[in-house]
């Protein structure tokens, strides 16, 4: 019992970084062979993690209350404009549209690049690693944004669906749109774990390549499916913009 208590005090000092170097080294040596001591250390680490987690939760709750006030008051301001002001603004906007409508519309036309940049959410390699415990070379290169290296992996004899997706993405990132489209099409039209990812990036490839009709068709399909992984990315606003680009 005494030994347990002694060990515990020693481990707390170790955790707090307060052990002299010689004692620290001796303890680390013991930890390598003493399983019970290691477990005792883990228990203490978990306890400190508990208090840190509690602190973070409290801090977030505090900032959350502040920020909800700020963010909601912003929205409220928008809605609290009086009716008269709103009508006046509506009339002013109508007059503006009547006078310079067509020209302004032309001048403000959307660019596919801008819309692409607004809609693009990069594929999270580390977040969806699949069943492999280790990160592949292709994933590693993609994370480092070394798109050339990813594309270079095409020569591999066997490519997993995820590899093909990353190659397609690398082509998309480097503006080799035909090739990106070809990779995404293969994935999007076959049964695999990354089919929905491929559909989303295929629609963005079409958009970047100014194939608006194809982009729109695919985006509408994704938007119509609430359980699609990228459903939230394609808001009505985005679809309306693509429609405009498609001249519809």
């Amino acid at each position: 019992m005494d030994e347990l208590l002694q060990n515990e005090n020693l481990l707390i000092s170790y955790l707090d970084g307060e052990l002299p170097e010689a004692q620290k080294e001796a303890l680390e040596k013991r930890l390598q062979t003493d399983k019970a001591l290691r477990e005792q250390l883990t228990n203490l680490q978990v306890a400190t993690q508990a208090i840190k987690h509690f602190g973070t939760t409290q801090q977030v709750a505090f900032v959350h209350a502040q920020m909800m006030q700020e963010l909601k008051s912003k929205k409220a301001k928008v809605f609290s404009i009086s009716k008269t002001v709103r009508y006046t603004m509506a009339v002013a906007a109508s007059i503006l549209i009547l006078f310079i409508g067509a020209r302004v519309f032309e001048a403000l036309q959307l660019s596919p690049q801008k819309l692409y940049a607004e809609s693009f959410v990069d594929f999270n390699v580390s977040g969806t690693r699949g069943k492999e415990a280790t990160i592949s070379e292709i994933e590693n290169s993609y994370q480092k944004k070394d798109y050339k290296a990813v594309i270079g992996a095409i020569r591999s004899t066997h490519l997993y669906a995820k590899d093909s997706l990353l190659i397609g993405l690398s082509y998309l990132q480097t503006d080799h749109l035909d090739k990106a489209i070809s990779f995404f099409q293969k994935l999007a039209f076959s049964e695999n774990d990354f089919q929905q990812d491929a559909e989303y990036y295929l629609s963005l490839s079409y958009l970047k390549d100014k194939k608006y009709d194809s982009a729109l068709q695919l985006m509408q399909k994704i938007a119509a499916n609430p359980s699609h992984l990228y459903h939230a990315q394609l808001s009505e606003d985005v679809l309306a913009k693509v429609k405009k680009l498609a001249g519809k």
Binding site: V121, D122, F123, N124, V125, S126, G127, T128, Q143
Partner: peptide, 12 residues
Amino acid sequence: GESSIKTFLFSL
């Protein structure tokens, strides 16, 4: 920072 924070948060 392996991916952008935006991507990571979206995924979380």
